[in-house]
Design a protein around this nucleic acid. Sequence first.
DNA 1: CGAGAACAGAGAGCGGTGCTCTCTATTCGG
DNA 2: CCGAATAGAGAGCACCGCTCTCTGTTCTCG
Lengths: 230, 230
Amino acid sequence: MVPAPRTARAVARAELTRAILDRAKAQLAEVGPAALSVRQIARDLEMASSAVYRYFPSRDALLTALIIEAYDDLGEAVEAGDATAERADLRGRWTGLARGLRGWAVAHPHEYALTYGSPVPGYAAPQDTIASAARVSTALLTLVADAHAAGRSPVATRPATEAELASIAPVRSFVVDELDEAYTVRGLMAWATLFGNVSLELFGHMYRGVLDYEAHYATLVEQLADDLGL
Amino acid sequence: MVPAPRTARAVARAELTRAILDRAKAQLAEVGPAALSVRQIARDLEMASSAVYRYFPSRDALLTALIIEAYDDLGEAVEAGDATAERADLRGRWTGLARGLRGWAVAHPHEYALTYGSPVPGYAAPQDTIASAARVSTALLTLVADAHAAGRSPVATRPATEAELASIAPVRSFVVDELDEAYTVRGLMAWATLFGNVSLELFGHMYRGVLDYEAHYATLVEQLADDLGL
DNA sequence: CGAGAACAGAGAGCGGTGCTCTCTATTCGG
DNA sequence: CCGAATAGAGAGCACCGCTCTCTGTTCTCG
């Protein structure tokens, strides 16, 4: 936000802030959000634990920073997946997007838990996170809007109610100004289905058999593409 | 499990175990899983914190007991929802089941987070929980099997792969011995969509507008019923 | 350039946590 | 009735997040 004056002190501050964040990220990946310890980070960085509080006012603030980074990482992965196919290849973009989502989640389970699991801090999702969090839904909505613009349409779908229309109103305004009612409903469903599947898999709710998650997810994604008329 | 000998000591033990569990449950509902404190429970019950460990070997064990109760409560709510309609009224059973799920989750957000959010203990979902956890998916699978038996069929659906078939194999054996491939895929999708929606709502990922969750969920449930051919 | 303000780091300490160990009192089964 | 099993209490350990105070450094500005 702030351009940061180029004083030696400001540079050192930026570097140490980054170092703390990196160390926290590493610890998060190792032991998970619940066991993330400010004191341990300080020990790793060979500094007094109290000094860390010069950079992050609380453990929750540190976690919030990690959450934002996680949202951005995920957003990037999803956008990259979307970009693996030609713009007109809607189905390719969809599967890329979906694979990007699950691939990132499987590779970063603790980060995924931090963002899409139960809220860890006292609650109150910080306002700072919404911009980063919106990247995924924006990518998905854009794809759906592109499908509609290309004359596609989903399988038989109920008309959207006020609720659905209201839910995408904020995003719709600056992403796309016309979105089919049916696509709104199907889009929200696909969104929930994708995250539902990934959450159920990562949080240990898939059947304990020898389920091939990868293959199962592939079928799911293809079916959703069919339903979306891609 | 054990018939429990009727000694005064055994009775007292059972009562205190129950009291601890109840107090823990109340605390869980108030402050959430992360802030649940063995010491606080002991204070509430006016006993030494060390005494609690005579009943639950660790905080995680206590949480596990709460998880099992939560699964059972949810299972009961879902089964009750399913039972609000006549056995042959598949659509009524479906909406009842779905409303039971969300209704319980909204009424018990911390319990829902404990079960379907990110795993709180070190990981390793205890084996004890699976029987209770299976109640929901059993109810859903039974409904889908009943639909198939009644000659219904879902909208155009891809054939199930080995993955899907394997995933329901353990349940299929004692719930229903023949289940359509298409219904397997659609059933798993509906399962993921339902939980995905509830999780996204409860964990704060629904769009920050004035979204009427209730109405949105109703539309979703109806659409899923359509897709399932109910 | 130099003075005063702003900042960074360290250390001690507070109140909290989960959990263990030891000691005593009670209740059980043979 | 007596020895063994059990229950409770209390002290204590190692950790946690966080605050406060003190010192040294680096900045800004007259």
